[in-house]
């Protein structure tokens, strides 16, 4: 696609996304504003994972850890009386980043399948630690008594939360776009294709991968902080391995390494779930069939059907 056409298309999509809640309100379908927010949050989470998997070439199977941590930090702080998003969200990012540094630094000693499994192990450790803590609400999770406050904006209003999420998603997509073309991003591209060569050229391979892992994981934490607000709950299921699997499936479905792979995957999967859920009790059966078809017939994901990989 030509650059100019692409920019026009992106601007149109962004505009449509901005006015969407107004249209829904006019139609009296306010419920769908929350649903749309959820889509955007998962789009953000999947995009952040795509940065690690698709740009950094590291198949991480523990993204739920960071997603869930972001949610739990916000919920914890709420219990402790910290309601301001201006404090709680940066703290959530900080905690997630810290966890990502530790987990990444250890996990990156391994590679391939073993990297998949060790990231999974760490995520499961966090899952079991949190559900056994009574202060974290155990199996029930930790409810939020209210949404974070983001003065001067009113997050209690669904539309404002939607726009906040949209801005953060747009900002992250924009930033990741810049990163992918920067020196760092090009170094990642080299790493993905030939790590041996990067090492021989004298690149600090370990540090490059770690930074990529931490950046992606931290954005995953941001998505978690948003989801806690949208759900009104930090739930243990956010930390469970099937959540990591779901996010990974979104990325693969959308297109590994494509700029909008995470967005396309998240919207497709959750959209299918919603639509099929209206017609059948067994929506996951049909989703499974769709995913299977994608795996067999378009293994590059939906985004590969058009457009170039980054």
């Amino acid at each position: 696609m030509k650059r100019s056409r692409r920019i026009v298309l992106e601007a149109c999509l962004l505009l449509a996304a901005i006015v969407l809640p107004l249209i829904l309100q006019a139609l009296g379908e306010d419920f769908y504003i929350s649903f749309a927010t959820r889509l955007l949050i998962f789009a953000l989470a999947a995009t952040s994972l795509n940065f690690i998997v698709g740009y950094g070439g590291m198949v991480a199977f523990g993204h739920a850890a960071f997603f869930g941590l972001g949610a739990y930090v916000v919920a914890f702080l709420m219990v402790a009386g910290v309601t301001s998003a201006w404090i709680a969200w940066p703290v959530a990012l900080g905690v997630t980043a810290l966890a990502a540094i530790v987990i990444g630094a250890i996990s990156l000693r391994t590679r391939g399948v073993y990297f998949i499994m060790i990231t999974l192990a760490f995520a499961q450790m966090i899952y079991y630690s949190i559900i056994s803590l009574q202060v974290a609400g155990g199996d029930d999770g930790l409810p939020l008594i209210q949404r974070s406050t983001l003065s001067p904006f009113d997050l209690a209003d669904d539309t404002t939360l939607y726009w906040t999420t949209l801005s953060l998603l747009a900002a992250c997509l924009h930033a990741l776009q810049h990163i992918s073309h920067s020196r760092f991003g090009r170094a990642l591209a080299g790493l993905r294709q030939n790590e041996v060569r990067m090492e021989a050229l004298g690149y600090p391979v370990f540090r490059l991968k770690l930074v990529c892992f931490v950046v992606g994981s931290t954005i995953g934490g941001l998505a978690g902080a948003l989801l806690a607000n949208q759900n009104g709950l930090a739930s243990p299921s956010l930390l469970y391995w099937t959540q990591s699997g779901m996010l990974l499936v979104m990325v693969i479905l959308g297109g590994v390494g494509y700029r909008y792979g995470g967005v396309v995957g998240a919207i497709t999967l959750l959209g299918l779930e919603e639509v099929l859920g209206r017609f059948t009790e067994y929506s996951h059966f049909f989703i499974g069939l769709v995913l299977l078809a994608i795996a067999l017939f378009s293994p590059g994901g939906l985004a590969s059907l058009r457009g170039q990989r980054q």
């Binding site: 810049h178 990163i179 073309h181 920067s182 020196r183 760092f184 991003g185 080299g190 600090p204 490059l208």
Partner: peptide, 28 residues
């Protein structure tokens, strides 16, 4: 990657001359 990008990455690797590869914004 293109041949040019292959070599450019090799050039970029000379950190003491070009500075770090940890630059995230400006397009290479």
């Amino acid at each position: 990657l293109s041949l040019l990008e292959n070599v450019r990455l090799a050039v970029q690797a000379r950190q003491h001359e070009w500075g770090s590869s940890f630059r995230f914004w400006r397009p290479a």
